[in-house]
């Protein structure tokens, strides 16, 4: 356990900043691919991005096991989560309600919890730290929440992710949901979003 002074600070106002973060995530999830930037957390624990830490502060607690990918699971990150969120940190990503992974080393999507047909909400929400998100270019998104189509460019992803995403979509109503993060900016892809590579 790291000394208390090493724990990075959480939200300045836990109540209102959680609300603002949730609304950003809700908006992102309701309108897949739309970018939202959260200027709420300046000093997240390395190697987590500000948006990753903010989403966890807003949504993760003792009821939601968290999985952190080995390449991101620093002492600072783990202490931060344990102290601020009070969440169990699990080694098996199939048991996680939330997961954090980097785009380059994103494990196979099939290994997360996908829920079951009777309770599809028990699937993992995976926060993916990318090296760049940009609207108006790249992938073509369609599905609920998108009027016609939406363009989103995601940088730094390992290859094969979108093929696995298609398989994830076939599982509906089961399947994982993604929150893509780039620094303080985030976008979300619920399981209903169809991704077409340009």
């Amino acid at each position: 356990m790291a000394p208390m002074t090493d724990i990075k600070p959480g939200f300045r106002d836990p109540v209102l900043d959680s609300q603002a973060t949730f609304r950003a995530v809700l908006d992102a999830m309701a309108r897949p691919g739309r970018l939202r930037t959260l200027a709420l957390l300046e000093d997240p624990p390395a190697p987590l991005a500000p948006a990753t830490a903010a989403v966890c502060l807003a949504l993760v607690d003792q009821d939601t096991p968290l999985w952190i990918a080995p390449d991101l699971r620093s002492q600072a990150a783990e202490t931060f989560m344990k102290f601020h969120c009070g969440c169990p940190i699990v080694d098996d990503r199939a048991k996680a309600a939330f997961a954090i992974a980097s785009a380059a080393k994103l494990p196979s999507l099939g290994g997360f919890a996908i829920g079951d047909d009777a309770y599809p909400e028990t699937s993992t929400t995976v926060i993916v730290q990318t090296v760049g998100l940009a609207a108006g270019d790249g992938l073509t998104l369609s599905g609920p929440g998108i009027e016609d189509t939406h363009r989103l460019a995601v940088s730094g992803l390992r290859s094969g992710v979108w093929r696995e995403w298609m398989e994830n979509g076939v599982l509906f109503p089961c399947g994982i949901d993604l929150i893509l993060v780039d620094g303080a900016t985030l976008a979300a892809l619920p399981r209903t979003t169809t991704v077409t590579e340009a």
């Binding site: 209102l16 609300q19 949730f22 995530v25 999830m29 949504l59 929440g145 399981r191």
Partner: peptide, 29 residues
């Protein structure tokens, strides 16, 4: 607390709302 509910309840409801959005029309307990 702001908007009456305690923060843990809000987090639980917020997670349910997000899953509800991800599975349109499905009733999340």
């Amino acid at each position: 607390n702001f908007a009456y509910l305690d923060e843990q309840t809000k987090r639980m409801i917020r997670r349910a709302i997000l899953k509800g959005v991800a599975v349109p029309g499905y009733q999340v307990p």
